[in-house]
Design a protein around this nucleic acid. Structure first.
Lengths: 108, 108
DNA sequence: TATTTAGTTAAGTAATTTCTTATTTACTTA
DNA sequence: TAAGTAAATAAGAAATTACTTAACTAAATA
């Protein structure tokens, strides 16, 4: 049951990440909290299209929204991303590999 | 130029991972090298469908194939997965987070 | 209170993805 | 060499995804 929930979350996360605009949105939110309009302004596509991308990311637990007055602000939820991706790397890569990569990073 | 190639690879990797059957194939290959038929036998879908999934994974640099006699054997290329996912986590998550997760793992 | 601004929801279309079956290629063995 | 097995390619149907514009809701301001 719990594991099944985890699989469904993983499914939604990988689905969410399979889109260049959505990965771009996450990159923007890594540096600052932004309103829906701030985000839409950085893309060529229409506002509803961006709004839909934001829903996908929110349903995957990758971002959270908060309405303040007229605006809706979005912020990154870095734990979901880190947990799902690190978890998957460790599941697939014979343990030593990801650790080595991280050790290198830690060493820097 | 180099960075553009990196972005195209990332694009293909996330695209490849956005499919449950393909993530399952990677999990199988994490434990052993398998022939195309061995892999197809583990799924309900037709062999050509599995073959197409294998192409997607191979084009993303996540697996490699080698023909030996009548069979084509597939094996995981763990570096691509680890590099792309770790790289992305670090790009998006304010550095501390993935390191902490890995430190915990290393501590075990 | 009427208008403007920010954002989402709805409905429909275009593009892409994921399957299927049929065909083809390459190797093995009777 | 003929027959059988393993796998990929081809062609097309069905399902999903990613957009568009139009309509709607909520908050701010004149």
């Amino acid at each position: 049951m719990v594991d099944d929930a985890h699989l469904r979350l993983m499914e939604r996360v990988f689905q969410a990440l399979a889109s260049t605009p959505r990965r771009k949105i996450l990159a923007y939110l890594a540096h600052a909290e932004l309103s829906a309009g701030d985000i839409a302004a950085r893309f060529e596509m229409s506002k509803p299209a961006v709004s839909q991308h934001l829903s996908v990311l929110e349903n995957a637990g990758l971002i959270a929204s908060e309405k303040r007055g007229q605006y809706v602000f979005y912020r990154l939820l870095p734990d979901t991303l880190a947990n799902v991706l690190n978890g998957y790397v460790q599941e697939v890569c014979p343990v030593s590999r990801p650790l080595k990569a991280e050790s290198r990073t830690i060493a820097e």
